[in-house]
Design a protein around this nucleic acid. Sequence first.
DNA 1: TGAACAATACGAACAGCGTTCTTATGAGAT
DNA 2: ATCTCATAAGAACGCTGTTCGTATTGTTCA
Lengths: 243, 243
Amino acid sequence: MSPTPQERRAARHEPGAPPAKTRRGPSGGGKKPITVEAIVETAFGIVAAEGYEALTMRRLATALETGPASLYAHVVNKEDLDELLIGRLCASITLPAPSPSRWREQIIGVCDGLREQYLRYPGISRAAFAAAPSNLDTLRVSEGMLAILLAGGVPPQRAAWAIDALTLYVNAHCLEVALAARRGDADQWVIGRDEMLRRFAALPEAFPNTRAYAGELTGGSPGDRFAFTIGLMLDGLVRSAAG
Amino acid sequence: MSPTPQERRAARHEPGAPPAKTRRGPSGGGKKPITVEAIVETAFGIVAAEGYEALTMRRLATALETGPASLYAHVVNKEDLDELLIGRLCASITLPAPSPSRWREQIIGVCDGLREQYLRYPGISRAAFAAAPSNLDTLRVSEGMLAILLAGGVPPQRAAWAIDALTLYVNAHCLEVALAARRGDADQWVIGRDEMLRRFAALPEAFPNTRAYAGELTGGSPGDRFAFTIGLMLDGLVRSAAG
DNA sequence: TGAACAATACGAACAGCGTTCTTATGAGAT
DNA sequence: ATCTCATAAGAACGCTGTTCGTATTGTTCA
């Protein structure tokens, strides 16, 4: 019985992982064998260079100097590949040992780390939306965040839901940033703040507040807005949480 | 010069809109003419019945008893269609007259309304992510939210960024709910709370908090979590805002 | 009334996508 | 030296968004 990719997938997170026997195949000694590791690595390279939308099975196969069909011996489908990417990305996040007095900055640090990784691979947060929440690597991150919040004295129920809210917002924010950047590069639609301000100023009378506060609406870097929203949630979290 | 769809698109939000002259075409008196209105209506029907992923140009054309090419005389491309859908969806949101004492429930009402509309058309929030923020219909909603927050005494800069955070979260939440529902129907992966709890309980020792608080992590309906997060943000908003 | 026009509708096709079927290859085991 | 069989890969299927060229039609002008 040859192990199907499904079985590979299921056994991928097993403890006693055999060290990749690097077995045979046609053009075996040719260049480098196609492994899951090589696939994931190359996929990250494509996403980093050209964005997540450029990551197609064909493009990936071409980068590995092979055909699309060859990938399906190592990966169940594209959804499986996406999960591998998200898992590996989450695995690169370093989690601090919970410090009760520093829980706020620690949570912010984890969110900043996630944001940094997501933005390194533009658009990949789209895959994070569909990733199953039972993935061990993503669970590891939420476990770390939960530990920090609990150490900070946040009640368990609020902590649990806050983690959901935070990760969801991080994903959404990074997806929006990536989409905005893509529009900027591709369509030459790079409407800067000036153009945005001009448009808001030229709005009909039905938009008095938008016109009056165009500066506030268009101001701030994505990073500023990100920090603001994370802070907003954490502020709300302590409002009625037992310190 | 025949007006290209781009020109149509540009002129679509003009004040003096000629009342759709319902002009000619082959099979002119056949059944009903293909109009932008009919396209949008049919598209909403498909999304409501089969989800956003089922909304393809071909599927839409078939529903209108025509070929895919015929659509491109009324719509620039699928991105344009998406923007039309999001715009129309936002146009259906009713905005209350700002009441300074009731700003909190009013903002919650708008968010609930958005959520309700998004969930009526599962997965359509995916299109909302890519929709240009300069769309008049979406701007109308944010104008209304801004008016409510300002009336509530929230400082302009915080109000502006909070609107961004709120709408982004609403989109992300609805997208996740739609994706989860899709998995449930399609893959028979309907892992209920029981199964989720069992999996969390069977986790390795490296996940002590996840195991201990599996109930809190898996508990609550999507609606509960939505209300919690919106409340979280609003709580954070008033923490240092001048009442 | 008849001809020219302009706008729409639409069949056919293109390039690209994820995925699968089928076959050939060649390294390890016998 | 032969056999086994997992890997690799070619070819194809059905699907997507989009475009080209053409046919059809109601209107308008001579």
